[in-house]
Measured scan of single mutants.
Amino acid sequence: SFNTVDEWLEAIKMGQYKESFANAGFTSFDVVSQMMMEDILRVGVTLAGHQKKILNSIQVMRAQMN
């Protein structure tokens, strides 16, 4: 498990989005775990492969939080 959203993004090789997530207010796992595709688009993730990777990881995160 990760301590910060930045660490999580690095771990899934999506570190290039750290600033975008932070600027959009997605700075805690409570918020990130609620993200939908529209949120991912809003933070500027436009590549389908990256969207899928982030969404898949969020689903895993949700499962671990319950």
Score class of each variant (00 low, 15 high):
S1D: 14
S1Y: 14
S1C: 14
S1W: 14
S1I: 13
F2V: 08
F2L: 08
F2P: 08
F2E: 06
F2Y: 14
N3A: 15
N3T: 12
N3D: 12
T4P: 06
T4G: 07
V5I: 10
V5M: 03
D6N: 10
D6Q: 07
D6P: 09
E7C: 07
E7A: 09
E7W: 04
E7T: 07
E7D: 14
W8Q: 01
L9H: 00
E10Y: 06
E10L: 06
A11Q: 10
A11V: 08
A11R: 08
I12D: 02
I12K: 02
K13A: 15
K13H: 15
M14R: 00
G15N: 06
G15T: 06
G15I: 05
Q16G: 05
Q16L: 06
Q16T: 06
Q16A: 09
Q16W: 05
Y17Q: 01
Y17T: 02
Y17P: 02
Y17G: 00
Y17W: 04
K18Y: 05
K18H: 04
K18A: 12
E19T: 13
E19L: 10
E19N: 10
S20D: 12
S20L: 11
S20G: 14
S20N: 15
F21D: 00
F21A: 00
A22C: 07
A22R: 15
A22K: 15
N23P: 01
N23K: 13
A24V: 04
A24Y: 10
A24I: 04
A24E: 10
G25T: 02
G25C: 05
G25A: 04
G25P: 01
G25W: 03
G25L: 04
G25H: 05
F26R: 03
F26C: 06
F26A: 05
T27H: 07
T27V: 11
T27I: 11
S28H: 08
F29S: 02
F29W: 08
D30E: 14
D30W: 11
V31L: 14
V32F: 02
V32A: 03
V32Q: 00
V32T: 03
S33C: 08
S33M: 14
S33Y: 11
S33T: 12
S33E: 06
Q34H: 11
Q34V: 09
Q34M: 12
M35P: 00
M35Y: 00
M35L: 11
M36D: 15
M36Y: 09
M37L: 14
M37V: 11
M37A: 10
E38Y: 08
E38N: 08
E38V: 11
E38D: 13
D39C: 03
D39E: 05
D39I: 03
D39Q: 05
I40P: 01
I40A: 02
L41T: 09
L41V: 14
R42A: 14
R42W: 06
R42C: 07
V43L: 12
V43F: 02
V43P: 01
V43E: 00
G44D: 02
G44T: 02
V45G: 01
V45L: 02
V45S: 01
V45I: 12
V45N: 01
T46V: 12
T46I: 13
L47T: 13
L47W: 05
L47H: 14
L47F: 09
L47G: 07
L47I: 15
A48V: 12
A48C: 09
A48H: 12
A48W: 07
A48P: 15
G49P: 14
G49A: 15
H50D: 14
H50P: 03
Q51R: 08
Q51K: 05
Q51E: 02
Q51A: 13
Q51D: 02
Q51T: 06
K52P: 01
K52M: 14
K52G: 06
K52R: 12
K53P: 03
K53Q: 14
K53L: 15
K53H: 15
K53T: 15
K53V: 15
K53C: 10
I54S: 00
L55K: 04
L55Y: 14
L55M: 14
N56V: 12
N56H: 14
N56M: 13
N56L: 12
S57K: 05
S57W: 13
S57M: 10
Q59C: 12
Q59R: 12
Q59E: 15
Q59L: 14
V60E: 15
V60S: 09
V60T: 11
V60A: 15
M61C: 06
M61I: 15
M61G: 03
M61L: 14
M61E: 04
M61V: 10
R62Q: 10
A63D: 15
A63C: 15
Q64A: 14
Q64T: 08
Q64V: 08
Q64E: 13
Q64P: 04
M65T: 06
M65L: 12
M65S: 07
M65W: 04
N66D: 15
